[in-house]
Write a protein that binds this DNA or RNA. Sequence first.
DNA 1: GTCTATATCATGATAGAC
DNA 2: GTCTATCATGATATAGAC
Lengths: 196, 196
Amino acid sequence: MPRTPTNVPPGQIREKVLGASLVLFTQRGYFNTSVPDIARAAQVSVGSIYHYFKDKEDVARALYLGLMEGLQGELGRIAQRHATAHDRCHAVMAMLFELTESNREAMDFMLYAKHREFLPSERPVCSSKPFETMREFVKNGITQGEIRKIDVMVATSCLFGGAIRLITARLDGVLAQPLPDKMESVWECAWRSVAA
Amino acid sequence: MPRTPTNVPPGQIREKVLGASLVLFTQRGYFNTSVPDIARAAQVSVGSIYHYFKDKEDVARALYLGLMEGLQGELGRIAQRHATAHDRCHAVMAMLFELTESNREAMDFMLYAKHREFLPSERPVCSSKPFETMREFVKNGITQGEIRKIDVMVATSCLFGGAIRLITARLDGVLAQPLPDKMESVWECAWRSVAA
DNA sequence: GTCTATATCATGATAGAC
DNA sequence: GTCTATCATGATATAGAC
C-alpha cells in the first residue's frame, strides 16, 4: 500500500502533518483548508509546519509524490509477480479496488484531485509514472498478441476506464457496495473490450 | 451544443460574465480566479457581477446548471432520434467527443472540475441528470437483450469509462489527435465489453 | 443598471521567545 | 526544534455616486 517517502526525521511531525493534510485536502479540498486547520488536525503548531515545509503547496507536493511513489512500487511488484498482460492488468485493477477501500483518502487525492490547480509544476496524472507503467503493460500485451492491435492509449483507457469510473463513483458515495465485490464482473467487461 | 439558460436580460452582462468565468475557471481553477479577474475578462465592473449574481459561487452554479441542462437536452434529442441502446450510446459517445473539440472549456467544467469543493450543495456529477439518463439507456439495453445482464452501474461505467478517460487525457493535453479520429476504435472496444 | 472606491475579513507566511 | 503572536497581502462583498 502506498506510503509516504522514507526519509522520516525522528520527530514524527512531518508524518503527522502529511496524514492530517491528506484527510483535510480530500474532505474539504486544498483551497478550503488553511494552514492553521492542518496544524489543529495534526496537533502541531503552525511554525512547525513551516519548519518542515516551504509552504502549503510544498505539503501537497510531498503528499502527492509520496503517494505516487507508493503506487509505482505496487506496480513494480505486480510486474515481478506476473508475466502476462492479462495477469498484470487483472492484478492492477484488483489492487486499485482494494486500495480504494483500505485507503480512500489516498486514492481520492491521487486520481480525483485537480492537481493542476494547486501544483502547477507537476505533470497531469495521465502522464505520471504509474499511468505510464500501466500503458507499458498494455503495450507488451499488444506485441505478445494477447491484446488486439489498437492504439495503446485507447486500449489502456478502455481497459481501466470502467474501473476508474467505478472508483470515482465509490469515492462520491454513489456506490454503496465495496468495489472488490464488482471486481470479476468489471474485469470480464474490461478484458473483452481489448482481448485479441 | 450546451448553452447557458434562456432567461437572458437585455444587457448581455450575464452572458459575458458566464462566458469569461467558464474560461477562467477551467484555465486557472475556481479558487485561483478572483471576482475582479472575471470583471476584467468580461469587460464589466465588479458591481455589475454582484448585481446579477449573489456571489462568486452563484456564478459557478449558474454556469454548471446551464451546461448540464444543455447536455441533458442533447441526450433527449439522441433518445428521440435513436431507438436501440446500441445506437443511442454510440451517438452519446460521438457527441461527447465532438463537444470536447468544439467547446473544450464546457466539457472541462462539466466533467473534470471538482464541483464539491466550490458547490457543496450540488450533487456529484455521477448522480447528475445526464449521467442518470445514460444509465437509463443502458438499462433499456439490458431488458431488451442487447446488453448482457450485469449491474447497470458496472455496464455504464465500462461502456463510457474508456471514452471519458480519453476525454480527460485530451483536456490535459496528453492526446494530440482530435478525439473523433478515435471514435470507431473506442466504440468497438466499449461495445464489445458489454454486448450480449 | 452600471460603475468606482472601499470596508471587512481571512489567509499565508514570519519573527522571535523558549 | 517547537511554539505563540503578529503582519502584510489580497480576497469578497458592499456602499454610494452617476
